[in-house]
Write a protein that binds this DNA or RNA. Sequence first.
DNA 1: ATAATACGTGCATAAAAACGCATTGTCAAG
DNA 2: CTTGACAATGCGTTTTTATGCACGTATTAT
Lengths: 251, 251
Amino acid sequence: MLKEERHQHILTTLHQEGKVLASELATRLNVSEDTVRRDLHELADAHLIQRVHGGALLRSPALVSYTDRQQQAVQAKTEIARAAVKLVHNGQVIIFDGGTTTLQVAQFLPLDLQATIITNSAPIAMALANHSQIEIILIGGKFYKNSLVTVGVETVETLRSFRADLCMLGVCSLHPDLGLSVPSLDEAYVKRAMIASSADVVALAAADKLNTAAPYIVGPLRDLTHLITEAIVPPENLTPYQDLGIMVIQA
Amino acid sequence: MLKEERHQHILTTLHQEGKVLASELATRLNVSEDTVRRDLHELADAHLIQRVHGGALLRSPALVSYTDRQQQAVQAKTEIARAAVKLVHNGQVIIFDGGTTTLQVAQFLPLDLQATIITNSAPIAMALANHSQIEIILIGGKFYKNSLVTVGVETVETLRSFRADLCMLGVCSLHPDLGLSVPSLDEAYVKRAMIASSADVVALAAADKLNTAAPYIVGPLRDLTHLITEAIVPPENLTPYQDLGIMVIQA
DNA sequence: ATAATACGTGCATAAAAACGCATTGTCAAG
DNA sequence: CTTGACAATGCGTTTTTATGCACGTATTAT
């Protein structure tokens, strides 16, 4: 049985049954558990499955609610969120970008925080509904179903009319030379407007976002004032960012 | 059963039932109570649930009250929603008011409906995210935490710039003489703007909303073209509305 | 006030994963 | 045919993770 065959088999059974167990696969495929583990590791690296202790699950539990989807890679996101919250202070006006990492940050904000939060993300607005001291401005526009944020001319224009102290930016791809980039043009415009309307800009990036690039450029790294990433990242990978004057924080 | 599966299960039952008991989960998931406790602890650490003695609750009281409201009189709301969906046709531009009843309607819309939906409700925008043929416009403004909708000048102004075929209006209080009324001034302005921007106006009102009044008047009943209510309502209670030329539908 | 239930912690155990290393098989160049 | 490079696989060892149990403490209920 070839490796590719096994991969195929793993993916199909995963889609059929919702989960696979490493031990089960080893007997079914007549290989050692080591091999299965290696297979699963490769598939997880390619973002095709979600690796968990004992086996693997579907990466995006077929169209479950956003709040559940957010459960993935909780560990890393939680740590980043905890670090990000430390940058927030009473009385600030803060722009919150969409995305699951920024949503985590929103949920970790202290319940008694006094602030104005401006966001184009419906889940973030809803998550903040029980913070009685936070004034929430939800920015309107065309609703982008994938990431549950608004985009388009109106979103960008409305953002221009604010002047925030801080901006929590969810980052898709970050590269020392190419700068920030995202997979859709609409989102690029929105993020650009967020950056322009904010004094400080905090980028939240999991380790796998570093040194990658996407089709649409948002802007150069100089735009960032802070970068928060995981503790696992080897420090030498971060020096290019520090050299640009960005305050790099490892959660 | 993998740990992540249990976590998923806990989250979904929590969303469905509003609470979970540790002891119940232990038997349901076939693990010791210790394990359940550990699971709950982890989920609470990630701010996904609110841990309490004996089990766990949804984290955000606002969302709790919202889901509570959503769970009230499901029967009636479902029937009203089914009736409301029949008024919707391909190609229309439809304004959706906030509220749990209108949210039900949104969820009952056929998955292949082609339409443009304009709403100030974050949950409705999110609920429609899996309707690929619907263009969603989310209206921005100050976010009103109680009902998870936007209100304020910007919301009203933006509504003015649209001309819709249909408006699905969630109704708080309805009275033959006093007209439509709501418990907050901001919402009154918004509903007024929605009515003004729409050709047809459909009011969705459970039986207990009929012949009641609230502090802030939205407008006279003449503004309505349709009224959908429950089947239980005695027909004689509805004649005042019919006499005003409103098309009354009993679900 | 007292019983019953739930909680947290430390510990033991078993399962799973990670790691290094040896073996095997394949392919291509010599 | 041989040989060396290389990927794939399996094995043994160590490390990590998950889970249940025991026990003392806290919380709730009666």
